[in-house]
């Protein structure tokens, strides 16, 4: 009797979980289905689970009706600079922080935590002025520049937490061998933080790929539009033409989904810190 009750409860648990997943993923499924519908047809009045015919041409059309390729290249240019810079600044700063005396470590930690609470809106205006002074309005550098401040204080804290877990004696012995800080970081600390680095790379990629606000605020030259602005233009070009709008959204979304699948594998297959120390 008890066992049977347990069976039903487990079933209910799984059933609820599946329902939740369906609610969260169904819109994305519709997005995909709609993106390959024949454009220009009268919209369906019932929910269409599968399209009658699949038209991949919609995706090719996106690249003809507007300079989608250029938007993608601009987005990738921003990412190609912003991601490595963020990784370098965040990793070195996190290492530097982990080597400080405890009083300063605490101050810097609190400072970074307070920074996380500052609303983005509060920095829009004067950042515009600073970028104007630097001559960076209407330049992809306006979008890249946060990378030089590690993009997000959280990334510095992630590296800091990782390096704090490493026994201090490991870095000390290298230091006594006469290695300078850069060598210690590059040869000893950095390889230990590989899982953290993977996480930060992915989060940074998502941050710059998704970024809509910064280009809206700081980019006026149509040659420099990134993909999110392109999607906004597509909305104006093809208002109500759902197959194209959804195809654009899928193009925007695909790298993110792909990265997150990659992330799961990276986290699963990575040599974690714990493993590494067990082997020594």
């Amino acid at each position: 009797m008890r066992k049977l009750q347990g069976f039903w409860r487990t079933g209910l648990h799984h059933g609820t979980a599946v329902t939740v997943t369906a609610v969260f993923l169904l819109p994305l499924f519709w997005m995909l289905v709609t993106s390959v519908r024949q454009p220009g047809l009268p919209p369906q009045r019932t929910v269409e689970w599968l399209p009658e015919s699949i038209r991949w041409q919609n995706y090719a059309d996106l690249f003809v009706m507007m300079p989608t390729a250029r938007y993608i290249v601009n987005s990738l240019k921003v990412i190609a600079v912003a991601v490595p810079v963020t990784l370098f600044i965040a990793s070195t700063a996190g290492f530097g922080m982990s080597q400080l005396a405890s009083a300063w470590r605490r101050r810097l930690f609190l400072g970074s935590a307070v920074l996380l609470m500052i609303p983005g809106t509060a920095v829009w205006m004067f950042r515009f002025q600073i970028l104007q002074w630097l001559g960076l309005i209407d330049s992809l550098w306006a979008l890249i520049i946060p990378a030089f401040a590690a993009s997000n204080p959280l990334f510095v804290l992630l590296f800091y937490w990782t390096y704090r877990q490493v026994p201090a004696s490991i870095f000390e012995s290298a230091r006594l061998d006469g290695a300078d800080a850069l060598t210690v970081w590059w040869q000893m600390a950095r390889p230990l933080a590989r899982p953290t680095a993977v996480g930060v790379i992915i989060l940074t990629f998502v941050m710059y790929w998704n970024d809509f606000i910064a280009p809206v605020l700081y980019i006026y030259d149509a040659q420099l539009y990134t993909l999110p602005l392109g999607i906004q233009i597509l909305k104006q070009l093809e208002y109500g033409n759902w197959p194209y709008l959804m195809a654009g959204s899928v193009v925007m979304m695909l790298p993110i989904i792909f990265l997150f699948i990659l992330l799961q594998r990276a986290f699963l297959h990575n040599i974690s810190l714990a493993n590494l120390f067990e082997r020594n």
Binding site: A93, G96, L108, A122, I130, F148, A149, A150, P153, A181
Partner: peptide, 19 residues
């Protein structure tokens, strides 16, 4: 190691704290 913190602190000051 303190020098490592310099870009982060300076960048954050100019781009977040100051604005």
């Amino acid at each position: 190691t303190r020098l490592f913190l310099f870009p982060y602190i300076l960048g954050t000051f100019i781009l977040v704290v100051l604005p």
